[in-house]
Computed example of a mutant assay.
Amino acid sequence: MINETALLESRTLRSGVLERTDVLDRVKALSLLPDGMHVTTAMVAAYFEVTVKTLESSVEDHREELLASGYQVLTGTRLALLKRASGIQSRSRSLALYSRRAVLNIAMLLRDSEVARQVRVYLLDMEYVARAQPVDNPAPTDTSAQDARIDQRITHILGRTVVPMFNALIATSGEHRHELIELRRDIENVERKLCWHHKRLATLEGDTPADDVRAKLKAMTWQAFEHHVADLLRRDGCVDVVVRQARTDRGIDITGRTADGRTVAVQCKNRSGHSTVPSADMQKFAGAARAIDHVDVALFVATCNFSHESEAVAKLSGVVTVNREELEAWSAGVLLKALQ
């Protein structure tokens, strides 16, 4: 039976299982570009929960192998056609794309990624079951006809009962593994929120100094605040994040894309904590984000709270509001649900 170490070391073994790309979705949902065939470097890194630098280093070490499995770098006319067809907004002159086979290939190269390890384990389980499938062999000439019939009956029973049972168990194991991964993420986010609220309560009770996050946000200029929000977007997996910092932005300060390809537009308001965001500001942003740019995720992030009227406008137009308390929690490490 092929083991994990052999798979990591042997290109020949890896090439023999590249068609089993269905294991990727059994371990974790793999988001594709609008063409339904490819993913970008940032999307692959997000899938395996590694840095882009780690992924690019692996690509550099095994470029020839990955090119054979569907990895490619688009430039010039091909890149322009892809941008036009998929709506990708990037000023880069080149774009690396991975097919599903190339992503599976990466899973067999990344030693330190827990997601990649789970893909390898599931892949090896499936390979073992495939090798254990019964095959038709001619009955030996030195056995009796009765023995041959018994062998055939055993083979039939194994093929109809035991092997399908193992297949079902392995498939169920993969589904449960995916659920456990999602559950682990939810628990980690709850832990962050509990730590954040515990810290806030301790601050209110006077057991700790004034909250560092709130103090840092309060000291930011509007330019620094927009860059801070852009960094939070990148931390939560967004790519192509651009801070406009122009007064003719129609209410949109930051643009980008989530890890699964959804477009994002953000309006930032750095105001005193006693102020509220009026409905006029919300209407302007909602019109720009929804009616003009047609973005998928519209975020209005403020260092204060929102008026009742602006909250109502946001709800009607599908704008996600992030008020002072939510911003402080986001800055402290809590993931923003709208980006997941």
Rank of each mutant, 00 (worst) to 15 (best):
Ile2Ala: 10
Glu4His: 04
Leu7Lys: 06
Arg11Asn: 14
Arg11Gln: 14
Leu18Lys: 01
Glu19Thr: 13
Pro34Leu: 00
Phe48Asn: 11
Thr54Cys: 02
Glu56Phe: 07
Ser57Gly: 00
Glu65His: 14
Glu65Cys: 05
Tyr71Asp: 08
Leu74Gly: 00
Arg78Glu: 05
Arg91Cys: 05
Arg93Cys: 09
Ser94Pro: 04
Ser94Cys: 01
Tyr98Asp: 04
Ala102Thr: 04
Ile106Gly: 13
Met108Cys: 15
Glu127Gln: 15
Gln133Met: 07
Pro134Met: 12
Ser144Gln: 08
Ala148Asp: 05
Ile150Ser: 02
Thr155Tyr: 01
Leu158Ala: 10
Leu158His: 06
Leu158Gly: 07
Gly159Thr: 10
Pro164Glu: 11
Ser173Lys: 15
Leu180Phe: 07
Glu188Pro: 11
Lys193Ser: 14
Lys199Met: 04
Asp211Val: 08
Leu217Ile: 05
His227Val: 01
Arg234Cys: 08
Cys238Val: 06
Gln245Gly: 09
Asp253Lys: 11
Ser272Arg: 13
Gly273Val: 13
Ser275Glu: 13
Ser275Tyr: 00
Asp281Ile: 06
Gln283Thr: 08
Gly287Phe: 11
Ala288Leu: 12
Ala288Val: 06
Ala291Arg: 15
His294Trp: 03
Val301Met: 04
Cys304Ile: 07
Ser310Cys: 07
Thr321Asp: 09
Thr321Glu: 02
Arg324Lys: 13
Glu325Val: 06
Glu325Met: 02
